[in-house]
Structure formats: C-alpha cells, structure tokens
Simulated scan of single mutants.
Amino acid sequence: MLRITIEPVWRFHKEESPQSIVVMLGVLSEIGKTGKITSAANDAHLSYRHVWNLIEQWSDFFGVPLVETRRGKGSRLTAFGEKLVWAGERMQARLGPQLENLAQELATEIKPFLQQRPSVIRVHASHGFAVAKLRELLDREPGIGVDLRYVSSQYSLASLAQGACDLSGLHLPRGELRAQGILACREWLDPRHDRVISFVTREMGLMVKRGNPLDIRALPDLADGKARFVNRDHDSGTRLLFDQLLASHGLDETRINGAQQIEFTHAAVAAYVASGMADACFGVEAAARQFGLDFIRVLTEDYFFVCRQSFLDTEPMRRVIELMKGREFHEAIAALPGYQPAETGSVHTVREFLDRVDTGA
C-alpha cells in the first residue's frame, strides 16, 4: 500500500528583507546527539562540506552561532541551536499524529486510482507507542495495508459501531477507576458481533524534570500551584483518566497551575516539560523516558482492540493476530519502557471481556 509522509519545513523570514532560509532541524538534532558533524552529514545523506556550509549560512542569517566546534572534542550546539532543536521536537510531538492522519486520508483518497490494491485494515485507536510499533511491523507485511487514524477510545468504539473502521483501540485503567471505564465503553460493545483482542499493558503516571527538583510524589502535590502543569486535550482518553483521578482524590483542577494548557499527545506533553516550559505532566512512562524525564507511576492501563467477529475470520486479520503473537512484536513491546505484552492476540467474547475486566483479571 502506498505510504505518504508529510513533513514540515522550517522556513525563517526577516521582515525587512525578502531573504528567507530553510533550517534542517534534523541536522542540528544529530549534532546535539552525537557531537559530530560527520554523523549529521551521513544521516542527512549530504557531504560534510555541504553541512558545514549550511551551518554557517544559518548562523549568518540569525546573527548568532548555532554550533560550536572544539578542537579535539567534536562539536556541540549553542544555547540557540538547542532551542531550535527543542522547538522542532515539540512540534513533531504535537503535530506528528495529526500529520499522519492527514497523510492517511490522502492515501485513502488516491488508492482507487492505483492498480495495486492490497487488503486494507482500517484502524482507529488512541495515539500510543505500542500502536505505532504494531503499525510499523504491519507495514512490512506484503499484501496488507493499514489505514490508521488516531482518535480517542470513545470515538474509536463509535467508529466501529458505525462501520467506519475494522479495528478499534480501547484502554481501561486497573483499580478503582475500572468501573467508570467499563461504563463508558459498554454501550458501544455489541455482545453478539464484537470480539475483544488483548494487546498490552502500559504504565501511566506523572512526568517531571530529571531529578524531580520540586519533589513531586503524587497528584496532590500538583495542587499547591508551585509546579507548572501541562495537560492533555479534552477529547483524549488520557485527559478523561486524569480528570477521574483528580475527582477520586478530591482535587480541584483550578488549583493546578497550567491545567488549561494543553498538548495533543503523550510525547507532546513530555517534550513541553523537557524543554523547561512546564514542570509536570501526566502520561505514559515511554514518553517520559524518551525525553529524559523522571516518572512517578500512578496506575496501569490495559490496552485492547475490538473488531467484528466477521472481520476476525478474514485472512488479513488472522495475519495481524499472528504478528501480535509473534516473537518480534513481543520483543519490540518489551523494549518500550512501561509497556508489556499481556496475552497479546488472545480473543474474547464481549461477555468474557466484561467478566475479566470487572474482576480486574
């Protein structure tokens, strides 16, 4: 299946001049990670001389250096160069899933005009590291295309009920909030025709700056107003879970400094904290580790997929189940911080599923 990638271009302009310049933030990011311009050049498939000329052009345009070279010690980003890289990482974390959705919409629209038409599985699921890994492995499978749209659990179940997708993502917290999660999804599940597939577990909690300078240990520590918080968007399942946690602790959101500041993915809130614009956020452990943050576990979530029995019996879906059960996928999930396979690929009726989750099994 045709795969489309939409990538932003960072073009800087000066008001007093028609001159503009495109900065390749990936080059700067690679220098920041490795301290080597040669590594950045290889990563960008450019010559060392060309990359060095670009860096000089960027520095001349801004009037400040972006990279410092140290004899015998390689290169490093200046404070300004680091700020540009952080801006790029925040942008990618914030807009990445939305750009993927737009690219997928375009691919779906032009597919009827193409000669090769593989079996396409339409997946609606909340954005997460395990879902992205599943899609990555499915993209390698010949004869199967994946139409993945990132939406909340509630919207994904509604999409399945309305026939707008084939596979719907669903995540439920363990513990005292389990019953609320079940109540929200029960109305969309059809016991006659739906089947539930076990997927993974993931750890949810607070992400704070490395070393936890504000000594944040639990949700009530956010309510004194000292920590600057960044929240998830209101339509996300993680925001719903966070609001339920606040209610269970008797905490008033208005007492949290920055609770109305929102970002749209786990990675986006983590990047916001890592860049120094906030002190804490709530999300998955994998996002915290990705951006070098400390993580304070609050609860574990179970992630499932739901599909129709009729679709479960199709050849493409049988291959998906095989991939979920395979060693490569299990190893990939085990490598994600805070994620674990959990009877991955096991299929349950809705009644079996509700009996299991009601008891916390």
Results as ranks from 00 to 15, higher is better:
S248E: 09
S275E: 15
T344F: 08
I37S: 06
T78K: 04
L241P: 10
S198E: 13
M91G: 02
A268S: 12
T34K: 04
A79F: 06
E285Q: 15
V85R: 02
D243C: 12
M324A: 10
K14C: 10
R135A: 10
S126W: 10
T108D: 05
T69M: 12
I37V: 15
T314G: 11
E301S: 07
P337W: 05
A335F: 04
E89A: 06
T238F: 03
P97K: 13
F353Y: 10
Q260C: 05
V27H: 14
Q115C: 05
L84Y: 01
D294R: 00
M277Q: 10
S346A: 14
R255A: 11
E30V: 14
F12I: 09
R318D: 13
G225V: 02
D302R: 12
A227P: 12
R232D: 08
M207E: 03
R289D: 00
R174T: 06
R149I: 04
R255V: 00
Q98K: 15
G128L: 11
L246T: 10
N257Q: 12
H45C: 11
K111A: 14
N231Q: 08
T108P: 03
I182C: 05
E105K: 11
L167C: 02
V347E: 08
G225S: 10
Q261N: 09
G175H: 03
D224P: 02
L84I: 01
M277D: 09
F12C: 00
V350A: 01
V85Y: 06
H127E: 15
Q244D: 15
K33H: 09
E352D: 08
T349W: 01
G96E: 07
K209A: 12
A184H: 07
F329C: 02
F304R: 05
V269P: 09
S119H: 13
A107W: 07
V357Q: 00
Q290W: 02
S159F: 15
W10H: 14
C165E: 06
I37F: 01
T201Y: 02
A79T: 07
K73C: 05
L293M: 00
M91T: 09
V131Q: 10
T5H: 09
A87E: 15
L160D: 06
P8S: 02
F113S: 07
G32D: 11
R210Y: 01
P213F: 07
F329D: 06
G283S: 04
Q244E: 15
T254S: 14
R49K: 12
E82K: 01
Q162H: 08
I216D: 08
L138G: 13
L148C: 00
R327E: 14
H45F: 13
R289E: 12
W52N: 12
Q154C: 02
G276M: 01
M324R: 08
T69L: 13
F229C: 11
E15V: 12
F229I: 04
I55D: 07
L134V: 03
A288C: 04
E203W: 02
M91R: 13
E328P: 06
G72V: 12
F305S: 01
R318H: 15
A103W: 03
G338H: 06
Y150D: 02
S20C: 13
D235N: 08
A132H: 11
L240A: 15
L219K: 05
H249V: 04
S126V: 00
S47R: 06
L323W: 03
R71C: 00
Q162M: 09
R232G: 09
A334G: 08
N42P: 07
E352Y: 05
A130C: 07
G128F: 11
